[in-house]
Design a protein around this nucleic acid. Structure first.
Lengths: 217, 217
DNA sequence: CTCGGCGTACTACCAAAGGAGGTGGTCCGG
DNA sequence: CCGGACCACCTCCTTTGGTAGTACGCCGAG
């Protein structure tokens, strides 16, 4: 990375743009090369100025920040994008990350942390607000719960039975499983019966659910 | 938070403990009040010294760091725990977070960032190494993929049909669904048939899988 | 060596699920 | 007021799923 970090600021509120420009343009090694008020002009601005980092609001008239992020990330040499918003709902966070954002900050983040974040993402590091990080941590941790429980139960099965569980988890019929696993349909049924009794379930649908909780897909 | 942040360091390698103590004990507002070489003694050390923060290695003889973390987090006023390890495998990260760690750092983290992390978690903020953050981001983003696809397809259904999808996703039989949703079994079958054709699926197990991908549970 | 678990396979039977096609009622919007 | 979407119900029929019980060859632990 040679030269200062080039930044484009996207927000529909001129006041916010001004504030951000003011706090970043002075900062060490950062220069604000452009501004935009909505997603559509953001894209043309990026194409013109080729910034390293884009600060992106979500709620904007016309093309919103998430969609703009998606499109920008499909560019040839895409800028790193920091989504900067007032609300950190789960929906927003997940959509932003999925769209390809490298950062997600709340607007009440102190100035020096914003410039720090710009430098971090420019260097290829992700940067999330603490609250967002906590969200992700909780999400992962809670998902792990059912995962581990499912694995415990699945451990009761023999390897072959687990093969069958896997196939059921993909929605296969007994006939399909038989040909896939090279055994007779009656054998498949035998395995299924064993699985049902061992895991104390009623039908194959519940086996499929368990397989998915255990992420065997 | 009054007074310095009290820290206990847990690592089986005396050299590592020494390094960490050296780099933290001098730092602003941090005092190392104890050390331990394994999970079991870590717990007694915490009970004796009542630290604000514990730096915890994972791989240790006897009780490992994950288990120790779990146990410590069940204490009356649990310390914040930073897991500090050499490898950031998905398994380690997920288990550590699930056990209740507030931080997850790699051992190659520069000293000043470690002391920063101690201060952050003491203040109630989470702190992850950039690589770990990226891991979580990817995980969440990729999970969202199937989620959105599932929702798109589910949008083709009528409200009542979605009710049925939900029930199937819980492994209910047609009879159970009928009584649960107050309709006749034949009606349930009609709905299921419609769902299968609309979503181009073969059997109810696949409906259940879709319901789970769309997190309707 | 023998016993038990595993994987495979069979029979026979019954229950559940799914397909095809039709009937009637409601409610909403053009 | 009429058409279309949705919901509910029906019958007849086929396919799939699940239970029960038996059997045989293999292999590893005791």
């Amino acid at each position: 990375m040679t030269g200062p970090i080039r930044v484009v600021i996207v927000d529909d509120d001129p006041l916010v743009r001004g504030m951000l420009t003011l706090m970043l343009d002075g900062a060490d090694g950062i220069v604000v090369v452009g501004e935009a008020a909505d997603g559509a002009t953001a894209i043309t601005a990026v194409d013109r100025h080729l910034p390293d980092v884009v600060l992106m609001d979500i709620r904007m008239p016309g093309v919103n920040g998430i969609t703009a992020t998606e499109r920008l990330r499909r560019r040839h040499r895409p800028p790193e994008i920091i989504v900067l918003t007032t609300f950190d709902t789960d929906e927003h966070v997940v959509r932003a990350l999925r769209a390809g954002a490298s950062g997600f900050l709340l607007k009440d983040t102190p100035p020096e942390q914003i410039s720090q974040a710009v430098r971090a993402v420019a260097a290829g590091y992700p940067m999330l607000s603490p609250g967002v990080t906590r969200r992700l941590m909780r999400r992962v941790a809670s998902g792990a719960e059912s995962y581990e429980q499912a694995h415990e139960r699945l451990a009761l099965l023999t390897p072959r039975e687990r093969d069958v569980v896997l196939a059921i988890g993909q929605g296969r019929s007994n006939a399909e499983i038989a040909s896939e696993l090279l055994m007779s349909v009656t054998t498949v049924k035998a395995h299924v019966s064993h699985i049902l009794t061992k895991l104390d379930l009623d039908n194959r649908t519940q086996i499929a659910v368990l397989a998915h909780d255990g992420r065997l897909l």
